[in-house]
Computed example of a mutant assay.
Amino acid sequence: MKENTYRTSSGTIHYWSSITTPNAITLAFLPGLTADHRLFERQMEYFDGKYNIFVWDAPAHASS
Protein backbone atom coordinates (compact mmCIF):
# COMPACT_ATOMS: atom_id res chain seq x y z
CA MET A 1 0.00 0.00 0.00
CA LYS A 2 1.28 3.41 -0.95
CA GLU A 3 0.26 6.51 0.98
CA ASN A 4 -0.69 9.52 -1.13
CA THR A 5 -2.20 12.94 -0.53
CA TYR A 6 -4.72 15.10 -2.33
CA ARG A 7 -4.66 18.81 -1.51
CA THR A 8 -7.89 20.79 -1.43
CA SER A 9 -8.68 24.36 -0.40
CA SER A 10 -10.11 22.90 2.84
CA GLY A 11 -7.09 20.76 3.72
CA THR A 12 -5.14 17.69 2.69
CA ILE A 13 -6.75 14.27 2.30
CA HIS A 14 -4.58 11.21 2.90
CA TYR A 15 -5.31 7.97 1.07
CA TRP A 16 -3.66 4.63 0.48
CA SER A 17 -3.75 2.63 -2.73
CA SER A 18 -2.38 -0.50 -4.25
CA ILE A 19 -2.84 -0.84 -8.00
CA THR A 20 -2.34 -4.41 -9.19
CA THR A 21 -3.30 -3.85 -12.83
CA PRO A 22 -5.37 -1.11 -14.47
CA ASN A 23 -8.01 -3.63 -15.59
CA ALA A 24 -8.42 -5.36 -12.21
CA ILE A 25 -11.46 -4.81 -10.02
CA THR A 26 -10.95 -1.94 -7.57
CA LEU A 27 -12.10 -2.28 -3.97
CA ALA A 28 -12.81 1.02 -2.18
CA PHE A 29 -12.86 0.94 1.61
CA LEU A 30 -14.52 4.00 3.13
CA PRO A 31 -14.32 4.10 6.94
CA GLY A 32 -17.31 5.59 8.71
CA LEU A 33 -17.60 8.29 11.34
CA THR A 34 -14.78 8.27 13.92
CA ALA A 35 -12.86 5.54 12.05
CA ASP A 36 -9.83 5.75 9.77
CA HIS A 37 -7.93 3.57 7.30
CA ARG A 38 -6.68 1.29 10.10
CA LEU A 39 -10.18 -0.18 10.36
CA PHE A 40 -9.47 -2.13 7.16
CA GLU A 41 -5.87 -3.25 7.79
CA ARG A 42 -6.69 -6.97 7.63
CA GLN A 43 -8.85 -6.59 4.52
CA MET A 44 -6.11 -4.58 2.80
CA GLU A 45 -3.57 -7.26 3.69
CA TYR A 46 -5.81 -10.06 2.42
CA PHE A 47 -6.80 -8.42 -0.88
CA ASP A 48 -3.40 -6.86 -1.70
CA GLY A 49 -2.08 -8.28 -4.95
CA LYS A 50 -5.49 -9.73 -5.90
CA TYR A 51 -7.41 -6.50 -6.52
CA ASN A 52 -6.73 -2.80 -6.81
CA ILE A 53 -7.35 -1.24 -3.39
CA PHE A 54 -8.24 2.29 -2.30
CA VAL A 55 -8.82 3.45 1.30
CA TRP A 56 -8.87 6.98 2.70
CA ASP A 57 -9.00 8.98 5.89
CA ALA A 58 -12.02 11.25 5.63
CA PRO A 59 -11.44 14.96 6.33
CA ALA A 60 -10.84 15.61 10.04
CA HIS A 61 -10.07 11.92 10.69
CA ALA A 62 -6.61 10.51 11.51
CA SER A 63 -4.08 11.73 8.93
CA SER A 64 -6.50 13.94 6.97
Rank of each mutant, 00 (worst) to 15 (best):
A58V: 03
N4F: 14
E41D: 14
I25V: 11
I25L: 10
T20D: 04
V55R: 00
F29R: 00
A62G: 15
Y51Q: 04
G49H: 08
S9V: 12
M44K: 02
A24G: 06
Q43K: 08
L39G: 01
D57L: 03
E41R: 09
T26I: 06
F47L: 09
R38T: 15
T8H: 13
A60P: 01
P59R: 15
E3Y: 07
H37I: 01
H61G: 04
Q43I: 05
A28G: 04
R42S: 10
P22W: 07
E41Y: 08
Q43C: 07
T12F: 10
T12H: 10
S18I: 01
N23G: 11
N52A: 06
T34R: 08
G11V: 12
T34S: 12
G32M: 06
S9T: 14
H61S: 14
D48G: 03
P59G: 09
P31R: 02
A62M: 11
L27V: 14
A58C: 07
I13D: 00
I13K: 01
Y51C: 03
T34H: 06
L39R: 06
F54V: 08
S18P: 00
D57K: 01
F54A: 02
L39W: 06
Y15D: 02
A24K: 14
M44T: 02
T12G: 07
I19G: 03
A24N: 13
S63W: 07
M1S: 12
I53H: 00
S17G: 04
D36Q: 12
H61R: 11
I53G: 00
F47W: 14
K50G: 03
F29Q: 01
K2M: 12
Q43E: 12
S10D: 15
A60I: 12
N4T: 14
G11R: 06
S9F: 11
H37W: 03
L39H: 06
R42Y: 08
S17F: 03
Y6I: 08
T21W: 05
H61C: 11
A60S: 13
G49Q: 07
T34M: 09
A62R: 05
W56E: 02
T21Y: 08
Q43N: 13
W56L: 11
E3F: 06
Q43D: 06
R42H: 10
F47A: 05
T12N: 14
Q43W: 05
F40R: 02
D48L: 02
R42W: 04
H14R: 14
T21I: 06
A28K: 03
F40Y: 15
V55L: 02
M44D: 00
T20W: 01
I53L: 15
Y46S: 07
R42G: 08
T5F: 10
T20Y: 03
